[in-house]
Amino acid sequence: MNGVTLVLRALHHGEKHLAKELTAVAERHRTEHEVHHVATDLARWSHTHVQRLADTGRDHGVHLGDPSGDDSAGVLSTLREKTAEAVVHRPEPGLLLLRDLRKLHLDAAGNSLYWEMLAQAAQATRDTGLLALASECHPETLRQMRWTNTMIKNLSPQVLTSL
């Protein structure tokens, strides 16, 4: 197993995890409408990254597992949405939201650094396919990070001063 394979595996895992987390956060904060909708859209980016990493892995002789694996079981996601609706008039979920956004940001930052490594390795090995993958996907990871950062910046003054 060479270094590129290691990073591909780690990134595949990281993007799959982020897609799952974005979906879970979207459900948990069903009543924070912007978070709900944008997180759902951004999960789609990570899903696409997972798919493309799996395809690239195959070209490199690495099997990265079933990319469509969807962990958000129907019952669990319904439960999360119902919980959100039950506390719609409470301020405390605001704190939970900030915590979740922070976690999403750190997960995305972890992925971003793997994309950086992958791009560097691709340049060193002159692997144009791998470089193209990294340069197309990495900007979306950075946009996921900017989004979580913006939401934290915009929401925390109100959430943290109103408890």
């Binding site: 009543t31 924070e32 409408h33 912007e34 719609v88 008039h89 409470r90 301020p91 979920p93 605001g94 910046k153 915009n154 003054p157 109100q158 959430v159 109103s162």
Partner: peptide, 21 residues
């Protein structure tokens, strides 16, 4: 003059009212 974040938009204001802040 508050300028630590963008001025709050209407939909978010109604969410803050819903949430009680």
């Amino acid at each position: 003059i508050p300028h630590y974040a963008p001025p709050t938009h209407a939909m978010q204001m109604f969410r803050y009212a819903e949430q009680g802040s």
